[in-house]
Design a protein around this nucleic acid. Structure first.
Lengths: 362, 362
DNA sequence: TTGTAAGCGTTATCAT
DNA sequence: ATGATAACGCTTACAA
């Protein structure tokens, strides 16, 4: 087992080229005071040795931070976050910044470990989609020093910082109002866990508000929760097979919606209206296609990255919050009428037959 | 605009605590030769100042590399890669290593930029899911020095290195043979772009082999390509509405399969059999549910991470390739018979009627 | 138990 | 135009 060989350094290049390390440095950084001839020779040695500068050492000397922007997300497998990352990427590219991503697995302790790891590596900026039940007071000192720290999708807890979020309350309210406008009065709510999660709270508020505005009494039996898609599928089955089932479901996030879709498809129920929060791949491939409130995930990332860049440029003004609207995309599932006409609240008995009697959407 | 304040250093803590920087260092690293009293006092100052060690400086002195494992993938939004990342994570966690991910956007130039950025930052190991049409000769020197570099899903080009791949050829052959076993003789192929992409080549080979073994003549008109899901949907529509359309489709990757599903759902065709390469979320939510060849994506990541760790531990043996089998998951779509019985090759004329005549799968 | 000096690989300063 | 030297923040070796 040969020991790991180390990379060549400035010193190695200098020795090989017969010059001082400073001359090598000059050649590499296009500094003016060096003869073209020397530069050429040095660069040739650089090439030959496969020399690459050690960024860590460079940053240390320069006192400055690394030109890497760190993004910490709860779950790599959730396309929502991938899209946010793409938004961030699009902004920082062209600023000679590299995006690195870490996943907290929706656990506050791992999130903190990751954020700290990036801070300790002198990242230029840190963008965080916080995990549920976290506490960000530990970042106060860094914030005070002017470190660009921006939160995305969910605001920080016990910390004031820049933040880019969707107008969850307004969007949820609009989505539920949409169902009400189509005649539904028994509307189920499928939400995240934990219940205290910011987005779930806001969306639930929107749900309650829409109900109230529609003169509909809130029924806690129509509320269910889950975490993974399969949980939501099970919850959906439970909801629609219970006494006095809902005629419509409002799914408060993408996994909830996918779970509901799965359950409805598997049980062959095409009579239950459905509106989901967050668009998702294949939403248009179902029968009927799924109506969603699409968050502008890309722009969420863009807005966050822009705030970070502004901080990086020296802006020490007070923390800002950017709120982005969501867009209702009616595709079919959210426009289904309740089974027995606009005024009936109970669709259980006739639902199945009704579904097969209606012409199928192509 | 106040200038960005810098983090406190060992020196700051030392001054504040009235000790030397070495004493502070001892207190921080739990070194033995320090009085409990001094340690307590130092740690208190550390706490008070919010001091955090500069990892870059530490690593530089220690000569060692950073304890970060870098993973470069072509597309953050593809759940396939997210799952690979999860596999890597599961291995390196517990080795005090942090996973950082970068996305090449399926572009070789960006991939190289990212890989180089991580190398220049002294990453402990680099895992690469290469973009199409890349060239990895530039990594030869690093490999020679013993840098752990592992390729995932697709092998390196013009470079010999550790590699973890799925047995694409065997799996594709099995999938197509499965369709043939169910009576199909006109089987479409939906493949990646570019055509030269390793996985697409291997899977296409498997397709051709299975056809040959089934005594079926290859028909180039049954082959279509695409990149995004919508492309594949369009390609699918073109395939099934052409003269002498296929009675079954083999989709050579997850987006291809999702595209085919979308197209078949939108056009209400439930008579075309479908087998997809790669499992995907919601594959079980369609009617019929989608039969797939599931790659063990998680284990792909695990295998790659294990090779990297072994290199990190000093193993300088020759490059290895780990090949993992895929698993056929029959869910329904791959078991549909051809329209007019096992021997008919042409399903166009009667397909639609046939579909509505068959009982719908629940 | 504690402190001093050297060094990691860079870049900046100042000679030459 | 080029080079010696200090400095960045830390750890290792050695001295006190």
């Amino acid at each position: 087992m040969r020991p790991r060989a180390s990379r060549p350094t400035l010193k190695d290049v200098a020795r090989e080229a017969g010059v001082s390390i400073k001359t090598v440095s000059r050649a590499l950084n296009n500094e003016p005071r060096i003869s073209p001839e020397t530069r050429r020779r040095v660069l040739q040695v650089v090439e030959h040795l496969g020399f690459r500068p050690n960024i860590l050492a460079r940053n240390m000397r320069a006192g400055g931070r690394d030109r890497a922007v760190a993004l910490v997300i709860p779950d790599l497998a959730n396309p929502f976050f991938a899209s946010v990352a793409a938004g961030v990427e699009s902004v920082i590219r062209g600023h000679d910044l590299t995006l690195v991503v870490g996943s907290s697995d929706e656990r506050p302790d791992r999130e903190r470990l990751l954020v700290t790891a990036f801070l300790d590596r002198q990242a230029a900026a840190i963008l965080i989609v916080p995990a549920a039940a976290g506490d960000h007071a530990y970042l106060r000192a860094e914030r005070r020093r002017g470190m660009p720290i921006v939160f995305i999708d969910r605001p920080p807890v016990r910390l004031t910082a820049d933040c880019a979020v969707t107008e969850n309350f307004a969007a949820a309210r609009e989505g539920v109002a949409h169902l009400i406008a189509h005649g539904h009065r028994r509307i189920g709510f499928l939400g995240d866990l934990p219940i205290g999660l910011y987005t779930r709270r806001e969306r639930f508020r929107g749900y309650r508000r829409a109900l109230a505005e529609g003169g509909i009494r809130f029924d806690p039996r129509l509320v269910a929760h889950g975490h993974r898609r399969q949980d939501f599928a099970a919850a959906t089955v439970a909801l629609v097979t219970a006494d006095r089932p809902p005629t419509a479901i409002f799914a408060a996030n993408n996994f909830a919606c996918m779970g509901a879709v799965t359950a409805l498809a598997r049980t062959g129920r095409r009579d239950i209206a459905l509106v989901g929060f967050d668009d998702f791949d294949l939403a248009d491939a179902f029968d009927p296609p799924i109506t969603v409130l699409a968050q502008d995930t890309m722009r969420l990332g863009v807005a966050a990255a822009e705030m970070a860049l502004s901080r990086l440029a020296g802006d020490r003004g007070r923390a800002r919050t950017v709120r982005l609207p969501a867009r209702l995309i009616p595709r079919g599932s959210g426009e289904l009428p309740p089974p027995a006409g606009p005024d009936a609240a109970d669709g259980r008995a006739t639902g199945g037959q009704f579904a097969s009697a209606r012409p199928r959407r192509q």
